[in-house]
């Protein structure tokens, strides 16, 4: 009961967030977007057609009526059809979102797992050359733009100037083998770019935990380093680690996918969004802008609930 109450309250503040985001984006669309009538009707529409379309789309209605309708459409997932392709937007999302997840998942998992591993090494050998080497590599990795990494990796691994081992573009995935072939280069680029940030963050968390008194107690009672890590550091560091993981998911999905997919020609939500921006395809954009905050709010709530579940000191308030 306690938990339910808490979740509801968190969701309520999430709703406020949602309203804010949708309001801003709708403001853009109404006042700054091109008049969609001619886009839909094509060339030389008749006056009656124009009038009818404007009425259907409620283009002359007062602002808040249109905003309300937008919210209602979002809530009921009545997302309409793409202006560029005519495809149903919910179908488009159902098609592209899983693909994007497939594309980004290995990079996300590897980037964080490797980051945690390197961070553990760096934290345990803190101040020694291993630590300094890892930290220097992190700073260097953080200084390379994602764009540069993508281009460079593609040249090195997929082109005839490099190793030419992997496909240059596309996503012709039929089985595990082809999946591995198409996902490798994007994954390498993603891991390369995120590893630096991840490692530094995890190292900071681990160093802080390793310095705690109860770790000293554990050692004083004979714990080895691996035991200290497993029983006294990682469980205690779980909260900030898990929180960060959860928060980085929306960022990765929205941001990372756009670049990779448009460059590698992979038909995921990022590429669809990019094309929608170029073509001013408002139904698609409305859907993406509307659903992104939902992801964020879900992540926020999840992180909060998990934080409280993990730490016996905190009571759900």
């Amino acid at each position: 009961m306690h938990v339910l109450h808490y979740i509801l309250r968190k969701l309520a503040s999430g709703v406020l967030l949602l309203l804010g985001v949708t309001f801003i984006s709708f403001l853009f669309m109404v006042y700054f977007a091109p008049d969609p009538t001619y886009k839909i009707l094509g060339k030389n529409p008749t006056v009656e057609q124009v009038e009818q379309t404007r009425k259907d789309l409620c283009l002359d209605c007062p602002f808040f009526v249109r905003y309300g309708q937008y919210l209602r459409d979002l809530a009921t997932l009545e997302l309409g059809n793409s202006w560029s392709t005519g495809e149903r937007v919910d179908g488009l999302m159902a098609r592209t979102v899983p693909l994007s997840l497939e594309l980004l998942a290995p990079g996300f998992v590897l980037g964080n797992a490797l980051g945690l591993l390197l961070a553990m090494i760096a934290a345990c050998y803190r101040g020694r050359w291993v630590d300094r080497l890892i930290m220097a590599a992190c700073v260097a990795g953080m200084s390379v733009s994602f764009v540069i990494a993508i281009i460079a990796f593609q040249v090195v691994f997929s082109s005839s100037y490099g190793l030419d081992l992997f496909p240059v573009r596309g996503w012709n995935v039929t089985d595990l083998g082809s999946y591995v072939r198409y996902v490798t280069v994007p994954t390498l680029a993603t891991v390369f770019v995120t590893l630096g940030y991840n490692t530094r963050f995890y190292r900071a968390v681990l160093v802080e935990e390793l310095g705690r008194d109860h770790v000293r107690t554990a050692r004083a009672f004979g714990a080895s380093t691996s035991e200290v890590l497993a029983l006294h550091v990682l469980p205690n560091a779980a909260v900030p680690i898990v929180t960060r993981l959860i928060f980085s998911i929306p960022l990765v999905v929205i941001g990372g996918s756009l670049l990779i997919e448009s460059y590698f020609g992979i038909p995921g939500i990022g590429k669809a969004t990019y094309e929608a921006i170029g073509a001013s395809d408002w139904p698609v954009l409305k859907a993406v802008v509307g659903l992104t905050p939902v992801l964020f709010v879900a992540a926020l709530t999840l992180a909060d609930v998990l934080t409280n579940a993990f730490d016996p000191r905190l009571e759900l308030r």
Partner: peptide, 24 residues
């Protein structure tokens, strides 16, 4: 040494408030 620590030779510290692991 690990066998001795907490075994034949044990130590307690000044700050009991932070000496125990809070999540166990």
């Amino acid at each position: 040494m690990r066998a001795l620590r907490g075994g034949a030779m044990a130590m307690i510290f000044q700050e009991p408030m932070t000496a125990l692991n809070p999540v166990r």
